[in-house]
Design a protein around this nucleic acid. Sequence first.
DNA 1: TAGATCAATTAGTAAATACTAATGCATTAG
DNA 2: CTAATGCATTAGTATTTACTAATTGATCTA
Lengths: 111, 111
Amino acid sequence: MIEAAQNPVTTVMRALADPTRRAVFERVFESKEISVAELTRGSGVTQGAISQHLKSLKQAGLVAERAEGRNVYYRAAPEGLEPLVTWMDHYGVFWRERFQNLRDLLKEIDP
Amino acid sequence: MIEAAQNPVTTVMRALADPTRRAVFERVFESKEISVAELTRGSGVTQGAISQHLKSLKQAGLVAERAEGRNVYYRAAPEGLEPLVTWMDHYGVFWRERFQNLRDLLKEIDP
DNA sequence: TAGATCAATTAGTAAATACTAATGCATTAG
DNA sequence: CTAATGCATTAGTATTTACTAATTGATCTA
């Protein structure tokens, strides 16, 4: 079946469904800012593959970039996860299962 | 890159990344219990396709079934979303960005 | 300047995937 | 019993996708 112009939920899900690409996102997130070359190192795939994954992630709104000299630094854009959160919210998963955490988190933030 | 024995996050993400399959899950969820025939109606795809999607969803732990006579009734298993929740939890998306005022929320839930 | 490094893009390929049509196997109905 | 219905499964197909290798265009460096 075909969707008109691609639902954001679909875009984000598809971006994160691939293990390699998700690993890229995770590394970007942990690194605050990281170049393509460094991402390529230890990724197990070529630089070209990494660039392609970054393109997908960017289109999904999950990462942003900053060019500096011949490097391009990527950083995570967790707001891009919003469509997922909204979608899941609909299923009441958060409250029922994370109830405990809410109280803990609140204490932690503002004791 | 290859993952040993398929990460649950990957399984769930992949299951929900396809719009048709995700629509099936949504309908199952809304219906509390629904037969394959009824799911097929108005789905735009064949009964076989629906059965295949249900198989994926079941393997991902997102639905469960109950056979009765020649019908098989499916119901949602939102616990199957747990891997997603856990994964996303790691990015602090839920509480910090979704609710500006946790205190109000907590009061509202448990005054 | 000439070379080296960084990143994006392209062309090509093997594998995965979403589908259909057809078949088979139960179960129910006439 | 025979016909019909509900569902799963199979084989086959077109499309998508994740990758590599190679190229290009920058920018930095010796």
